[in-house]
């Protein structure tokens, strides 16, 4: 054993230079996550380049499909005259309020329905029936009730957020492992302690999944709300772009929606990984 090891070391020092070089080069080169990111960027960059080229060389009409540079220019222009921040700000305000109220209502009602059989029989069929209505059908009614101001928009967004969060809260609490609850009972914990120390943490994964899909729907509904009557906001920019035949404004709004949607989801995802670090399937 000692002999072969000795030989190995000697051999390595003389011959294995090629492999060592490769390894040290790999170590000196880009970290692997940068490599993945680079690979993932190839296709979008290629599309952007083709798009830019096609409009520059007049292959497509610039007044129908403005070049990416024109879209960036539009955003830049709005940033300089300050209107960008107004539009983004009001849209963020609407989604956050809607998300907050939708989540609060869904968590409260969901928790009640999940723990109490009576509450389930009482409320769940109604909630499921309302869920069957496409939420956008409420828009005219909300406008009649609350006017075209903020309350009707926030209500619509809250309604969109409500259902996925509600379903996940109910499902999460009802699927908590009875065996864990029994451990609590074996230690003589009260019902309240069992909820706080076992049911809440155990249903957290499902709740957070609900939050993320709720937020996704919230973004859909903020577009709808702003399309249907607003004088500010990213959705309003869509209407403005259409009415003034300015596709660059429309595309700018789409890009900003994508950016904000992704950013808010990223924040939730970070919270999710942090809160659920104990889960077997979340990489730590």
């Amino acid at each position: 054993m000692a002999v072969t090891q000795g030989q190995h070391v000697e051999k390595k020092s003389v011959f294995s230079s090629e492999r060592e070089q490769n390894q040290s080069e790999a170590r000196r080169g880009m970290p692997s996550f940068l490599k993945t990111a680079g690979l993932a960027l190839i296709v979008p960059l290629l599309i952007l380049a083709l798009w830019e080229g096609a409009t520059r060389f007049g292959l497509v009409a610039g007044n129908q499909l403005p070049a990416p540079s024109a879209v960036v220019g539009t955003i830049w222009g709005m940033a300089q005259d300050g209107s960008l921040w107004t539009h983004m700000g009001i849209t963020m305000y609407r989604i956050l309020w809607g998300f907050f109220w939708g989540t609060a209502a869904a968590a409260a009602l969901g928790a009640l329905v999940a723990v109490s059989k009576k509450a389930e029989v009482l409320f769940d069929p109604t909630v499921q029936a309302i869920r069957a209505i496409p939420s956008l059908a409420w828009v005219p009614l909300f406008i009649l009730w609350f006017g075209i101001g903020e309350p009707s928009k926030v209500t619509l967004i809250a309604l969109g957020v409500f259902f996925p969060v509600y379903l996940n809260v109910v499902g999460g609490i009802q699927s908590v492992d009875r065996k864990l609850v029994e451990v609590g009972r074996a230690y003589g914990l009260s019902q309240l302690q069992i909820i706080r120390r076992i049911i809440l943490p155990a249903s957290m994964p499902s709740f957070l999944t609900g939050l993320r899909s709720g937020l996704g729907l919230g973004w859909m509904f903020v577009v709808a709300a702003e399309l249907l009557g607003a004088s500010e906001g990213l959705g309003y920019l869509l209407v403005l772009g259409q009415n003034t035949s300015a596709p660059a404004v429309i595309l700018a709004s789409i890009v900003l929606f994508a950016f904000l949607g992704k950013t808010t989801d990223y924040v939730l995802k970070k919270i999710q990984t942090r809160v659920l670090h104990w889960q077997d399937n979340v990489k730590t």
């Binding site: 065996k179 864990l180 029994e182 451990v183 076992i198 943490p201 155990a202 957290m204 104990w278 889960q279 077997d280």
Partner: peptide, 8 residues
């Protein structure tokens, strides 16, 4: 089964 709380 051990029945440990996975979050603890």
């Amino acid at each position: 089964e051990p029945r440990l709380m996975p979050w603890l």
